[in-house]
Design a protein around this nucleic acid. Structure first.
Length: 271
DNA sequence: CCCAAGACCTGGCGGC
DNA sequence: TGCCGCCAGGTCTTGG
């Protein structure tokens, strides 16, 4: 489900609902996520007020007074805010109870998601320490990408999906950005010119910003905190469109496997 | 160090 | 209707 735009959509929905609220309790029904839910979660956050909700790559950081809750949605994770206690359904693994009866519910069928804690302030959890720059931030530019890419022979698509290179670009937006930049996804990263990285950086930024403006991409089940589907799927150029005509030139979109993941591209528009 | 492949999970879909 | 194989928005770990 979630790449950067979807996580950002969740963050924007979540922040106004839970900022200033206090954690009053925790219900863990299934602690076995990508890493175990901390056994002392309840005692560590009890009574603490939420100061802010931040995003780093695809991670959500819920900053409370002493502890920061680190949430990753994996492939199928969802966060919802329930106005009142509600019966739990299948895969409703964790409820974070807030004052006034509010419940922040984590739901994740595949359990690739994550809920961890780290001390607020010293905020750099090991999982965040080696993540690359934010693609919408100043540190991410063509010079950076070009320099990082030298000596790398991996496909440029895999390269930009590597969270150590740049944070938050996943399988949908990698294909989309490469289409917009006119770059074939299989091109070895180290053989892409500086000029083409200038285009690629612009394409990544535009794609992500536009997707955020649309509230994310809903393919199967991505739903924002307020229960709304994202509508960026209407603007996808290539992702999930194998065999359908390229929106620019009409050539059928090609799907291939690159490094265990599906990649979509137009064989005429991308080289 | 770099890279490909495997691992972790469940559910939905198309084909037979 | 049922079973089977394949697919899925992520990323850490392993082994060559």
């Amino acid at each position: 489900m979630p790449e950067l735009p979807e996580v950002e959509t969740v963050r924007r929905g979540l922040a106004p609902l839970i900022t200033g609220r206090q954690f009053t309790g925790v219900v863990v029904r299934q602690p076995r996520l990508r890493q175990p839910v901390p056994a002392d979660l309840a005692t560590r956050i009890a009574g603490q007020r939420i100061d802010s909700v931040e995003r780093r790559g695809k991670y959500l950081l819920v900053h409370a007074e002493n502890e920061t809750l680190l949430v990753h949605l994996g492939m199928s994770g969802r966060l919802r805010v329930l106005p009142a206690p509600a019966p739990a359904g299948k895969h409703d693994h964790v409820d974070l109870l807030l004052d006034h009866g509010l419940t922040l519910r984590f739901h994740d069928p595949r359990r690739f998601g994550l809920i961890l804690l780290c001390a607020t302030g010293e905020s750099s959890h090991p999982l965040l320490a080696d993540i690359g720059p934010e693609p919408l931030g100043d540190a991410f530019d063509a010079d950076y990408l070009f320099r990082q890419s030298r000596a790398h022979r991996v496909a440029v698509k895999n390269f930009i999906m590597d969270s150590h290179v740049v944070a938050g670009v996943g399988n949908i937006y990698a294909s989309e950005a490469l289409f917009r930049a006119g770059i074939h996804p299989r091109t070895p990263a180290g053989r892409v010119s500086r000029a083409r990285y200038v285009r690629l950086v612009g394409a990544i930024r535009e794609t992500l910003e536009r997707a955020i403006a649309c509230g994310g991409t809903t393919l199967r089940d991505f739903i924002g905190v307020g229960g709304h589907a994202g509508y960026f799927s209407q603007e996808l150029y290539v992702y999930g469109r194998a065999g359908e005509p390229c929106r620019v030139c009409g050539t059928p979109v090609t799907m291939v496997r690159i490094g265990q993941r599906s990649a979509f591209y137009c064989s005429v528009c991308q080289h």
